[in-house]
Amino acid sequence: MILAAILAANAAPLAHELGVGVGVGYQGGDTVVAGGLGGDVAYRLGVGDHLQVHARVGPRLYLAPVLEADLGVGWRVPFGRGWSLTAGIEGAAMFGGVVRRVAADRIDPVLGAPWAVRVFVDPIEYRSGPFVLRTLGLAVGVGVDDPGGSLALGVHLFEVGFVGGG
């Protein structure tokens, strides 16, 4: 809805980007532990020169296999010929192989897919023609539905994207 309003108000040019990458995702605390290393498929929608929405999904392997799904919005800041950084906020959920933790005063496990809110920064983006390379992206946040409190991390080692106009 917000995005639609922005689009309507600004009629900004759109850029669609599809990418693949490798990253680490983790959410862990007193009640859940999940995450690991794995590949990603990402879609990004650029709105104008600065606004960027992304959706990313990928398996994570360390404990039991888990699927991480991220959805976020960021602000892109160009700082040189072809170079830019993007920072914003995203939600990250873990589906599948989540290790639950219980204790004597908390015998009922947290159910459902744990999810977290994270702030992220992609500090190094380089665009050359239709191609985009990102590396060393970092996301840090907290679990939303974990009463014990949990730390959520994402490290996007690299991502290669292909941009098409809209």
Partner: peptide
């Protein structure tokens, strides 16, 4: 009473990655 940290498995054969 015992202090115990209990981890519930995520699949049939827990923790294949470690």
């Amino acid at each position: 009473p015992l202090k115990v940290q209990v981890a519930l498995g995520a699949d049939d054969n827990l923790y294949p990655g470690t």
